[in-house]
Amino acid sequence: MAVDPLIELRDVNKYYGKLHVLQDIQLTVGRGEVVVVIGPSGSGKSTLCRTINRLETIQSGSITLDGQPLPEEGKGLAKLRAEVGMVFQSFNLFAHKTVLQNVSLAQVKVRGRKKDEADKRSRELLTRVGLEAHAEKYPAQLSGGQQQRVAIARALAMDPKVMLFDEPTSALDPEMINEVLEVMQSLAREGMTMVVVTHEMGFARSAANRVVFMADGKIVEDRAPEDFFNNPESDRAKDFLSKILKH
């Protein structure tokens, strides 16, 4: 597995004051791989996801993306972030812009596309996530699931090498979770490299190449989903699975 590493984290450590939130993290994500990160709240999984595009800085260790170490804050970092799509728990659509403008903005400002070219691409992507009819609406007029699908289209519009999903369905009503997961499933099938922090075990089972289980700032297990769900090795994972799979 992972013959062609796209993301590599080596000996990554991060502290919030005294709290050691990421402890000696080693993680490699290969091109085309879908890695699902699960774990209890406060285990550092969101933080891990956010360090990959340097929304969180790290104190020690190294993170490389396609062989390039993450640059310091500045133009270089902005350039790299354009290659890394990110989808947030709280959607974070630009509240003052329409759906179409949300998807087109960075294409024009960052990729330097012409406005009509960007809008054309945006409409294609909106069609893909099933929201072409809502292009002229503002985010506040959409449901959570719709907003999150727009957010995915917005990230895809940059033609990223990898997509990061930071608990993309955690703020959604149960009936809206599926529409978002379906979009993610189809991305996974098309070979997009994805790192997904989630509590959706069904998605982990069906779409992931690997499941990374985190607890207390450490990666406890890093295995194929079937292995992990059927035979968790660590007590911490057994305990976690017994709690969430009971219902």
Binding site: L55, A78, K79, L80, V84, F88, N92, L105, K109
Partner: peptide
């Protein structure tokens, strides 16, 4: 909200673009 700036930055917008296109409006 902080997420607005984070979303803009995660799309590769520079600090000044984030400020002028997303935050200040």
């Amino acid at each position: 909200p902080k997420g607005q700036g984070e979303a803009a930055r995660s799309l590769g917008m520079t600090f000044s673009q984030t400020l002028s296109q997303v935050i200040l409006p």
